[in-house]
Each structure stands twice: as structure tokens, then as C-alpha cells.
């Protein structure tokens, strides 16, 4: 079962999860729990698809997917940062909105396909040298550019968070906004920027599904991946590097049922469909057993900040 093809496919299946997880990590680092990941992914997926289909330009499709996710995130940011609305409910509202939005826009897109020219943009690119290593080359270095992009984004995000002054400020905003504020960090600005970037990443994750992974439009194309991404944030302890591993692991889980069917094991497909969800639950429970200050969520997560409130 654990073949080269399987591992490679796991990485591909994990890539949309990776984007969404990174997006949610950066959002949560700013102290905002955005449960609208699923919605933003759907918005990115549908707009990316629509744009790609009508313009036949992969680049435009990606830009618009990111924008769509960002717009979703903006609604959320406006509600929770400026208007201090409850974050959990605002995020849920965003998911509902995104689902409705994708359903609405996607209604006319069902069954459509991209041109070959378009798809060619996302062909596999073998990295010279590395791609020729036996086994590993095929698993890791022979992918479409989206996969590499996800990987690179994770690294950049890690560097940003742990090595730069702005990253330090961001972490402080999520931990203790009052302290960051008193230290002259502009809280509102930091929150907005990072929530928006987070949304854009979720949008890209969705676009990967509709443009590359599936790649035709179908209703509810994300199938709960946004939620799994939220779980992955906890699993990776808010660390972008660990998110890479987590996302690929869950990518593997996502396709395992499908793969096993091929092997003729006589268990209903519907039971296998449960696997990713059940495993997510189990992993979350296991993760919650580990108690360590450094793995803890940002302290102010979920709480609105108002300077004059106490």
C-alpha cells in the first residue's frame, strides 16, 4: 500500500490542506480564530475556477482565488476586529456565506472543464538533479508548481514568524494584545493584515482543489477540508514547519480509503469515507494530552481586544 505512487499522491492531496492550514496558523497567531476556512476555500475555489474558465489564464485564476479568500477574510476581520463580534460565530457565518456563495456562482460551472493549455500550466515539473534521486525524487521533487509553492510558503512563514521583528510583534499580538499595544504595536493593523493573508492562502488552497486536484467544478468541492485544516493547526502546534508534515499526513488519510478499495479489501467505501474524520478526532484527543507551554494556542485566541475594556 505504501508505494511511491501513494506517497506522492498523499503530498498532492495534502497541498490544499497545507495552504489552508498555513492561512489559519497566521490568522490564529494574530489572536483570531477564524472558523470560516471552509467558506474561504470554497470562495477561492469557485472564483478561481470561474476566472480560469473565462480568462483561460492560470495566473489570473490564482490571483482572483486569493482575492476571493481575502474578501471573505475581510468580512470576518471587519466583524471581529473592528466590531468585536464573537469570533466563533463570525467564522461560522463566513463558512455558511462561502458555501452559499460557491453554490450560487458554481451552479453554472458544474461539469465544465479547463482547456488543455490551461492545465498544462499545472503540469509536473521535475526538479533537475533532485528529481532523479530514486524513490524520493519521484515522491518529493516531481510535482506541479502548486505543491512547491505550498512548501515554500510554509518555510517563508516560519522564517517570518520566528526570525523577523514583525513576526515577533505578530506573536505578541496573539499572546497578549494589551502588552503588544502598550509596546506600540498597531494591533488593528496587524490583525487585519494577517487575517487577510490567511484568507488569501485559504482561497489558494481552495483553488488548488478546483483547478488542479479535481479539476472540474462540483458542489461542495472542499468536503470538510477546511475543518480538517483547523484541526491541523492544533496538530501542528501553530508551527508552519510542522504543518507541512501534518498536511501531507492528512493528505494520505484522505486518499487511503480510495486506495484500499483498489486492493479488494471488502469494507464498504462509506466506512472508509469516515476515516479522515475519525482519525482527526483521535489525533486531536491525543494532541490534547500533551501539555506544554510552547505548544499552547496563542493566549488571546478568540478574544476581542478593546483597549479601554478590562
Amino acid at each position: 500500500m505504501i508505494t511511491v505512487a501513494f506517497l506522492k499522491a498523499a503530498i498532492i492531496a495534502g497541498t490544499p490542506l497545507l495552504f489552508a492550514t498555513l492561512g489559519e496558523i497566521i490568522t490564529e497567531k494574530a489572536g483570531n480564530l477564524n472558523l470560516g476556512v471552509e467558506g474561504m476555500m470554497l470562495m477561492g475555489a469557485v472564483i478561481g475556477f470561474q476566472m480560469g474558465y473565462s480568462s483561460n489564464s492560470p495566473l489570473l485564476a490564482l490571483i482572483f482565488a486569493a482575492l476571493a479568500g481575502g474578501i471573505g477574510a475581510f468580512i470576518y476581520a471587519f466583524l471581529t476586529v473592528s466590531l468585536r463580534a464573537n469570533q466563533v460565530v463570525s467564522g461560522l457565518a463566513l463558512t455558511i456565506f462561502g458555501t452559499g456563495f460557491a453554490g450560487f456562482v458554481g451552479q453554472k460551472l458544474v461539469g465544465l472543464k479547463m482547456t488543455d493549455e490551461f492545465n498544462d500550466f499545472f503540469r509536473e515539473l521535475k526538479i533537475p538533479g533532485l528529481g532523479d534521486i530514486p524513490y524520493f525524487g519521484e515522491i518529493l521533487f516531481n510535482h506541479d508548481m502548486f505543491v512547491y509553492l505550498g512548501f515554500i510558503t510554509a518555510i517563508i512563514l516560519g522564517l517570518y514568524l520566528y526570525k523577523t521583528g514583525r513576526g515577533l510583534n505578530l506573536r505578541a499580538v496573539g499572546e497578549n494584545p494589551a502588552a503588544a499595544d502598550a509596546a506600540s504595536v498597531r494591533i488593528t493593523r496587524y490583525k487585519y493584515i494577517h487575517i487577510l493573508i490567511g484568507g488569501a492562502l485559504c482561497g489558494l488552497g481552495g483553488a488548488y482543489l478546483s483547478l488542479v486536484y479535481v479539476p472540474v467544478w462540483q458542489e461542495n468541492i472542499t468536503a470538510g477540508r477546511g475543518w480538517i485544516a483547523v484541526a491541523l493547526v492544533i496538530f501542528s502546534a501553530w508551527n508552519p514547519y510542522r504543518a507541512i508534515f501534518g498536511a501531507y499526513l492528512f493528505g494520505g488519510l484522505d486518499i487511503i480509503g480510495f486506495r484500499l478499495q483498489g486492493t479488494g479489501i471488502a469494507i464498504s467505501q462509506y466506512v472508509f469515507d469516515m476515516v479522515p474524520y475519525v482519525v482527526t478526532i483521535i489525533i486531536l484527543v491525543i494532541v490534547s494530552l500533551r501539555k506544554d507551554k510552547r505548544n499552547a494556542p496563542p493566549k488571546s485566541l478568540g478574544e476581542p481586544y478593546f483597549r479601554e475594556e478590562r
Binding site: K163, T164, G165, L168, A172
Partner: peptide, 9 residues
């Protein structure tokens, strides 16, 4: 914190 926003510290 909040005082240094150069790219790398």
C-alpha cells in the same frame, strides 16, 4: 517588541 521592524532582527 513593537520597536524593531527591520526584516531580520
Amino acid at each position: 517588541l513593537g520597536y524593531n521592524v527591520g526584516l531580520f532582527v
